[in-house]
Structures are given as C-alpha cells and as structure tokens.
Design a protein around this nucleic acid. Structure first.
Lengths: 186, 186
DNA sequence: GTCTATAGCTTGATAGAC
DNA sequence: GTCTATCAAGCTATAGAC
C-alpha cells in the first residue's frame, strides 16, 4: 500500500478529474498538476491523452464489474431481490453530489462523433460484459429466456442511472428496479 | 419557406454540428463557416456559445416531443402497441450512421460536471415533459398506476437509445419495447 | 525518469469600420 | 447587421538537459 508509483499517481489523478469534469474538458495540465508531475513525465508513461483515457476506462470497466458482482453476492433471497439490490445501490448513490452517473456511458457520449474511437469500443465491450454476466446469473437460476431478460435488465440499469443522474432523484432507480422485478417474475 | 434569416442559418448550422460532433468539440469557427457568416455576426444574435447551445437544445426539446406524439397518434391498436411503436422507431433509426442517440442526453453528459448549467436544466425539464406526456396517455387509457408505469417506460426509452447507439444494434430497442409491453400488460 | 522551456495550434470573444 | 482584424488563454505534444 505504501508504494505508489508515478504511473499510479497519474492514473489516479486522471480518474478523479475525468469522472468529475468530463474527459474533453480536462486538460493534461490539470492532470499533471494534481499528480504532482510534469508533462513530459506523463507522456513518458502514456503515449497520448487518448491512451490515458483508454487506461482510465479500462480500469473503470473492471471496477464496475467487480462492484456489481459484489452487490449481487452480498444480497440473499430470490434472484429478483438480488438484481433489485443493484438498482437500490444506484438509488443510494444518487444523492451524493460527487456521483455523476456511469463514467463509461459519459465517455461514449463525449466521443459520439467517432464510432471507431477506442473509447467507443471499450464502452460497447463493457456493456456487453455486464449483459453476459447477467445472462449467466439468470441461467444459473433456471430463468426462462435468460438472454432476453438480461438484455432488458441491462437497458433498465443504464436508463435508471441516466434518469437518476439527470433529475438527481433516486426514485428513478427504484422505479426501474421495480420494473426489473416485474420482468423477472414473468 | 424561401425566407431564411441569418439567425435561422446559424441555428441550423449549430444543430447539425452539435448533433454530429458534440457540443464541446464544435467551435464557434466551425459554426460560422457552415452558416456562411462571421463571428461578430453570430455574437450579434447569440450572447455566447452557451446561449446558442441553449437555443439548440430548446429546439430539440420541442421537436422530440412532437415526434413522439406523432408516432403514437399514427399507430392504431392497443396502448402497448402504440407505445411499442416508439421503441420500433428507435430501432429503425439505429442502423443510420447519422443517428447518434438523443441530443439531450448527450448534452447532459457533456455538462455532467456542472449541475447548475442551463444545459442540465433543459435536459431535466425535457425528460420530465416526456414522462408527463406518457402519464397522460396512460391515464386516458385507464391504466392502473399510470405515473409509475410512465416513469418506467421513460427509463426504458432512454436505456434503449443508449444501448442501441453504443452497440449500433437495433435489437436493444426492440428488447426494451418488449419489456415496456410486459410492464403495460400487468 | 524527471525536469525546464516552448512549439504550434485552436478556442471563445471583442474593437472598431462601414 | 455585417465585416476585417485581432486578442488572451487554452490545448496537446515535444526537444533537449540532467
């Protein structure tokens, strides 16, 4: 824990600033200042700003998948209760002013112009991984039509995040959770 | 129709560029070039870039609400069929490379850092108007729990747009449409 | 590996003429 | 109302010293 490499410090600064302010509006200057390095040092570890952005989103991808799994594993009960716990965790995050929705969706939105950009590739892959993970959970519970239902729950999850964020109102996540319950019960 | 004011030309150029490239990545220079005016002319009609952005999103707000109403009015059948027609229209738009999701969500994502920014206010208001409109439709059809169901359908709609856009796959909109049908049938 | 210094470009916005 | 000309500040990235 005591060892914190220069590269880690740069990535941590980027993570904080990109999430808080958005990718495009954060300059290299702000990142190097926060990481207490200089620009050439940053460019020694990362080829370009795009490469740093990709490293940031790759890290988020893994962290989010772990967090989802942790939430479901920690929740006892029927499958719909365990899935609903994810929506409840979104609801709980909503009032926190530092919570600004899903970094991956926001990244994809910022790079909407370019379908070939690596940010877009990372974003699509991440959401497909979430969907696959949901499918596997539902299959394990012998839910009929697991693939379709996983897709529908995935769509509800991101809709819930966006609406909860846009309105600053946790009820959107809870309404979406109730919708997911309804779908899984059928 | 023949009359196209300078102001209209600027707004049309902004609309095209902001939607295609994103708000932050489009400079005033690109807009004035496309509108065939010069910078001082743009600043004669719009106080700042922010004011132009607000005018752009206000226009989109109205256009989207009209388009939703038109889709539902043009579709015969049961209420779930008419709501599902909205999801089908998203599915049909998805393969078009010029379609880049919802301009209002994308705007809100680009300005996620600042909850007080006018873009955020316009975005939240727009989504609440869509939700209210859905509530009124469901109430007219004597659907029980219209407010909650309208909220759930609204969340599904934006989740559908995001996933269809991120993956470039219309099936996400259709899966969401099926979920909406399921909710409305209950 | 990390620094100082800076190149070279683009940005949003304005002064002042007509 | 619309122009030419220009500004200060921001950006990503690099050359070269240590």
């Amino acid at each position: 824990m005591g060892k914190e490499s220069t590269r880690d410090r740069i990535l941590a600064a980027a993570k904080e600033l990109f999430y808080r302010e958005g990718i495009r509006s954060v300059g290299i200057d702000a990142i190097v200042t926060r990481a207490r390095v200089t620009k050439p040092t940053l460019y020694y570890y990362f080829e370009s700003k795009d490469a740093l952005v990709a490293a940031y989103l790759d890290e988020r991808n893994g962290a989010i998948l772990s967090s989802l799994a942790k939430t479901v594993e920690a929740t006892p009960g029927k499958i719909e209760d365990r899935i609903a716990a994810i929506f409840e965790s979104i609801a709980k995050a909503t009032p926190n002013p530092r919570w600004k929705g899903c970094p991956i969706i926001r990244g994809a939105a910022e790079f909407a112009a370019d379908p070939e950009h690596e940010v877009r590739r990372i974003a699509s892959t991440h959401k497909k991984r979430v969907e696959l993970w949901l499918t596997q959970i539902l299959e394990k519970e012998k839910i009929a039509g697991a693939a379709l239902k996983a897709r529908q729950v995935g769509v509800l999850l991101d809709g819930a995040i966006i609406h909860a964020f846009m309105h600053g109102d946790p009820d959107y996540a809870r309404a979406a959770g109730a919708a997911a319950r309804c779908l899984l019960r059928t």
